[in-house]
């Protein structure tokens, strides 16, 4: 194969974006968002002060908020940050203006709370310190020859049907387990992008990393999960 020089986006270090906005009520979008009827009903109940609705909100979003807090503030402060975020949500839900989805509003609150906590602790933590390259991953130089070609053939999979793979209970456990072992920033970026389907711009604002670095985090997470499937196809276990 003939090689030409092509400038690629580097697997850059994770850079912090501009300083976070202290305003807790800042929105991801300034325009009105179309909110589904179910969510509208939940919001109405929450604004009326319905405790059951608030418990439902906690059950639906606590895990995701904890992932975001861990990615930004680290394990030590994450539980406190989310607790503080719930207090803020409780106090401010009556003035929720429906300019974004409820989830985006919650993520903005927990993100700002986590950034505020970092400032309070006077710690300048780059996501670099919370994340990192995984040795042995597909991006590891050991997988490639000096000319950039694969060192070994990519392993074949016995099953490539997504439907069939989704039937595999053991594989689901392996993927869930690996997801929980990912570095916090990778896990948060992956969940926000591939599970929650948030835009790269919104993820950048929530995690305070550049759009390029969000893409790098998501890519690394996918590659790690792909290796789980590689292993599962080869051995039938994690």
């Amino acid at each position: 194969m003939i090689m030409t020089s092509v400038k690629l986006t580097p697997l850059a270090r994770i850079e912090l974006c501009a300083p976070p906005q202290p305003n807790m009520s800042s929105r991801m979008n300034s325009t009105t968002t179309k909110i589904p009827p179910d969510e509208n009903e939940l919001i109405t109940k929450l604004m009326r002060g319905d405790d059951q609705a608030f418990r439902q909100l906690i059950a639906q979003h606590h895990s995701l908020m904890l992932s975001i807090a861990r990615a930004i503030a680290g394990d030590t402060f994450a539980d406190d940050v989310v607790q503080e975020a719930w207090v803020s949500v409780y106090k401010n839900i009556a003035s929720f203006e429906r300019r974004s989805s409820l989830k985006t509003w919650l993520l903005t609150i927990v993100s700002n709370q986590a950034k505020a906590r970092l400032r309070k602790e006077s710690r300048q933590v780059s996501l670099d310190q919370l994340d990192g390259e995984v040795p042995g991953s597909y991006l590891d130089g050991a997988h490639f020859k000096a000319d950039g070609h694969w060192q070994q053939p990519i392993p074949q999979w016995n099953t490539e049907s997504p439907e069939a793979l989704l039937e595999e209970r053991q594989l689901q456990c392996c993927i869930n387990r690996t997801l929980n072992l990912l570095p916090p920033a990778q896990k948060a970026a992956f969940i926000l992008r591939d599970i929650e389907q948030q835009s790269f711009d919104d993820i950048c604002k929530i995690l305070t990393v550049s759009a390029t670095n969000v893409r790098v985090l998501v890519h690394r997470a996918r590659l790690t999960l792909m290796q789980v499937i590689d292993r599962y196809q080869e051995t039938g276990s994690c």
Binding site: M1, I2, M3, T9, H143, F144, G148, H149
Partner: peptide, 10 residues
């Protein structure tokens, strides 16, 4: 032409 390594990265 891109190399395999470059394709894997993006």
């Amino acid at each position: 032409m891109l190399s395999c390594k470059q394709v894997a990265a993006v």
